[in-house]
């Protein structure tokens, strides 16, 4: 099974591998959520939704429904 951003745990780091899904808003890409960039989970709200992320130095929150479309490779943790 593919690993998505929804699977990331606190303290883990990952590299984004694919964001081509139509369900990912363009705005997210424009904020730096692009293949090759480093991503880290800062905090999750109850039920792990929304997720507070640090993508290459940009801090933002997205909903889980979006996170499941972003593919990643977990690099540590």
């Amino acid at each position: 099974m593919q690993v998505t951003l929804a699977d990331i745990k606190r303290g883990q780091q990952a590299i984004i591998t694919d964001v081509s899904s139509i369900h990912i808003p363009l705005k997210l890409l424009e904020m730096g959520c692009l293949p090759g960039n480093l991503v880290e989970l800062v905090q999750v709200a109850p039920f792990a939704d929304p997720m507070y992320l640090n993508i290459n130095g940009t801090h933002l929150a997205i909903r889980k429904e979006t996170a499941i479309h972003i593919l990643i490779d977990i690099t540590n943790g």
Binding site: P25, L28, M31, V42, P50, Y52, H59, L60, A61, T66
Partner: peptide, 9 residues
């Protein structure tokens, strides 16, 4: 619907 919000310093 989608939701993206920046978390400023």
């Amino acid at each position: 619907t989608f939701f993206v919000v920046e978390m400023p310093n």
